[in-house]
Simulated assay, not measured.
Amino acid sequence: MAAPPSRRRQAPFLIGLVLILAALPVGWFVFLREPPAPLPPQAPPRPAVTQEEAKKAVELVLSSFEGTVDVKHGDGPWEPARKDMPLRPTDVVRTGRGSWAVVLNGESVELRMEAETEISVEEISNELSKVMLGSGLATATVRGRSNVRHTFILKAKGADAEASTAQGTFTMSNNGKGTVSVGTREGDVKLTGKEGKFVIVRAGQRSIVRPGQEPTTPVTIPSTVFVKMEWPTGTQRNREVTVVGHTDPGNRVTVDGANVPTDADGKFTLNLALKNGPNPVQVTAVNVGGARQTEQQELTFEPPPPPPPRTGTMKVDTKIFQESSDGTSP
């Protein structure tokens, strides 16, 4: 049976409508769609980072100083320091009388050396700085970083003491004979002594390590400094005088600005050479908290009078034995 004429007339219309609807997405894709953004250039391949490169040493720098400061590179000779001088392992820095110096490890560590102090660089990396305090007084400020944990170690030469922290400020004194004192101003510091025994020295505390002993129990840093001098009395007849003094173990003692070594109990001896007349003497003791005490004394030296002539002796006038220019006696 043949289809009605009206349906036959509608068939081309429906076919055309379907083709138009099918063509709409194709036309939008071809004519109306925005072209995609160009791809970024391909980054060059990154070289593989070895473990040794990841722990690449960070350079220490002698940032600032005043007075006489010398540096020795390895086994080389001593040379005058220069501002921003780089320091590497085995380098040694020393400060003279009345001098100071500051060593920096980027933004992680600041180490201030007081007068007559000597340090040597042991190890430097992103994660660790290790310095040896040969003698003297040094203060370390260690700033924590969010991305890298950096530990600073200050080891005392000739002693069993080693102080370390990842964030904080502490001062270490080393008398060069095995007695070390550590005082913490900020943060916590691990102080290790003989056989690895350690204490945690918290802010405001100090601990002492004596030769062959473990660290003492941390106590509050004294706000005053104990100094006792045994001054000689009266006018001095000997040009050289010995004076004995006592202070707390680990304190730094200077006489007229020159460092004086102390023993494990804080005892020290001064050998003074006196000039004629009054001789002012100034003794200063400083602890690891920064407190100081000064004792002053004036020692007067008068040379002994010449010995009196001996009694019962005969004086001889030698002139009577001198011959005149013409060979005759006077």
Rank of each mutant, 00 (worst) to 15 (best):
P215L: 06
R46T: 02
E66I: 00
G250V: 12
E195F: 01
D160T: 07
P77A: 05
A203H: 04
R202G: 14
L39C: 00
R145W: 06
G277P: 10
I20Y: 06
K55E: 14
T179S: 12
P232C: 13
I200M: 11
V103W: 06
V199R: 08
A156K: 01
S329V: 03
R149H: 07
G168T: 02
V227N: 11
A22I: 00
V199T: 04
T300I: 12
G136L: 09
P222G: 08
L17G: 08
I153Y: 07
L137E: 02
S64Q: 03
G312E: 08
A166N: 05
F13K: 05
V281T: 15
P45W: 09
P303L: 14
A291L: 06
S125V: 11
V260C: 11
T141K: 15
A140C: 01
A138N: 03
P249L: 08
T242F: 08
V288N: 04
L32Q: 07
G234Y: 15
S324E: 08
L299S: 12
G74V: 01
E79W: 00
R8P: 00
L60K: 00
T269E: 09
S173M: 10
A140V: 02
P278S: 14
G183R: 08
P38M: 09
S125L: 14
S99H: 02
D317G: 14
T141E: 15
E240P: 04
Q293I: 07
A81T: 01
I320Q: 15
F152K: 01
P36Q: 14
R310K: 14
Q205Y: 08
L19K: 07
P35S: 06
N174Q: 03
S329A: 09
S223M: 12
N251C: 06
L24S: 13
V121N: 00
L32A: 10
G290N: 02
P232Y: 13
A163M: 07
S135E: 08
G96P: 03
A163Q: 06
V241W: 02
T233N: 13
R292K: 06
P309H: 08
R7N: 02
P306L: 14
E107N: 15
A285M: 11
R210M: 09
P305V: 06
G234L: 13
L191T: 02
P80V: 02
L274Q: 04
M172G: 00
N174F: 02
R237Y: 09
F31A: 05
I20G: 10
